[in-house]
Amino acid sequence: MSFRMIAQERPGNPWFSWDYVQGNSDTILAALREHAALTAQAVLIATVVAIPLAVLAYWVRPLTGPILALSGALYTIPSLALFAFIAPYLGTGTSTVLVGLVVYALLLIIRNTLAGLNQVPPEVRDAARGMGYGRLAQLLRIELPLALPGILTGVRLATVSTVALTTVGVLVGHGGLGQLILGGFRNNFFRAEIMTGTLLCVLLALVLDLLLAGAERLLTPWSRRRAEAG
């Protein structure tokens, strides 16, 4: 009952306060910067690792099942458990958070890249071979560009979920905006701090999603033209 009193009946604990935001802009910006940096690094590394794996699964059919099953199993492991596996080895730094985030982003990107590659029409593949493209040239100049919508879908899904997942990094003290959320909770249930962290987190996810959607439009002009024609 005493907790309830502190949290609810105490006056001057509003859900949002400009005073707090102005007075602590340095802390808030630092948290936001860490959050954005962790998300960007994680998605970038995951993309660089996932695309070759997806290509491998695409080229070597017998490997498709194992690669998808392994990344699926990794995805089932709860985030807290994953961070707990990594922390004793990498310590309580950003690297622990980064490795965990990469693992989760991997599955989404692999799965969507593979779906994109599989959607390339067989006639297109035949035509490329008939024109004398080698395997690698065909991949780089025909198949990957045509799989781009799938790849970008994966990257977008991975980005949005990584933004939310980064907050779990508070476990090792590097959760970006999660530091504000949990910090506010531990600091006498300071609502303004919790709410600022939450809002910035959702906003960051929204902004990154819109940016990637814009990039998708720029990079795949043909799909827009097709949509207009149809």
Binding site: F3, R4, A7, Q8, L157, V160, S161, V163, A164, L165, T167, V168, V170, G175, L177, G178, I181, L182, G184, F185, F189, R191, I194, M195, G197, T198, C201, V202, A205, L206, D209
Partner: peptide, 20 residues
């Protein structure tokens, strides 16, 4: 729901009339 961090809900809900 994909964009809402779990921790945010876990910390916000106890501070609403739902209580701890």
């Amino acid at each position: 729901t994909l964009a809402i961090p779990t921790i945010a809900l876990l910390t916000i809900l106890p501070l609403t009339p739902i209580g701890f």
